[in-house]
């Protein structure tokens, strides 16, 4: 195969241009990424996609991983035991069809818990993670009244041996924080990791604001739904197969 000089110049020019532009494109990408000492920004929005068709009834890998990761003690009366993530089983009233899915804080864009919190202890971080500042939570539980997803737990007992990166304490309210300590290190939440390793690979995590991310691509091309979409809270956690 031979090419003439005109063709050679065209291909060569394209290669040189790509080589020159690529680092620039990469720089834009880097500029949007965040170094650990930088504040979070709304350029990112962390979210989760749950494929309920891959979530099986006997599996609770996500729950076990969450309890271990966050040091949630298990030898507590069930009605007061903190549960940041739980498996919920649904049976259709008319058809009898049974399915199961994990429920946790849905990380709303407009979180009702943060609206009602008198001190602002419940808040939404710029990157979409809804958190409780355990240092200014006064334990009024108004957020638990307001949360449409029953996502929050109140710490009813004295705690000991909490993990340093997960502040928890008696008399305050807590919930799934999307493993914010892991996310800030560039890792994925413990439940997602466990589901991918030991479960049915039903959970996906990522930046839904980044069109190149897997989660954003799937959200753009596949059906998904919010729980209680009627409330128009724009949740960060979405479900498939509901």
């Amino acid at each position: 195969m031979s090419i003439d000089r005109r063709q050679f110049l065209a291909v060569g020019g394209a290669v040189v241009a790509s080589a020159a532009l690529a680092p620039g494109m990469r720089l834009i990408e880097l500029a949007q990424a965040r170094s650990p000492d930088q504040a979070v920004s709304n350029l990112q929005r962390w979210g989760m996609l749950v494929d309920t068709t891959r979530c099986s009834e006997g599996c609770s890998a996500c729950v076990t991983a969450c309890n271990k990761e966050n040091g949630l003690e298990q030898d507590i009366r069930l009605d007061i035991r903190p549960q940041w993530i739980r498996k919920v089983t649904l049976r259709d009233e008319n058809t009898g069809y049974v399915q199961t899915l994990p429920m946790m804080c849905q990380h709303c864009e407009e979180p009702p818990c943060a609206d009602v919190c008198p001190t602002g202890a419940s808040f939404r971080r710029a990157d979409g993670i809804v958190l409780v500042d355990r240092h200014i939570c006064i334990g009024c539980r108004y957020c638990m009244m307001a949360c449409p997803y029953k996502a929050r737990s109140f710490v009813h007992e004295n705690l000991t041996d909490q993990r340093a990166e997960i502040p928890r304490g008696k008399g305050t309210v807590e919930a799934c924080n999307l493993c914010v300590h892991r996310v800030d290190e560039g890792r994925i939440p413990a439940c997602v990791e466990a589901c991918n390793a030991d479960g049915g690979k039903a959970l996906a995590f990522g930046d839904i604001n980044d069109p190149a991310s897997d989660i954003a691509k799937r959200l753009a091309t596949q059906q998904s739904a919010e729980i209680r979409a009627d409330l128009d809270l724009n949740t960060g956690v979405r479900y498939q197969g509901l």
Binding site: I136, I138, K170, T172
Partner: peptide, 19 residues
């Protein structure tokens, strides 16, 4: 849950909260 933090409730406000 934290009555000792009443001072927090009296000094830090989220004005969207009816509380």
């Amino acid at each position: 849950g934290k009555p000792d933090r009443l001072i927090v409730a009296m000094t830090i406000y989220n004005f969207k909260s009816i509380f």
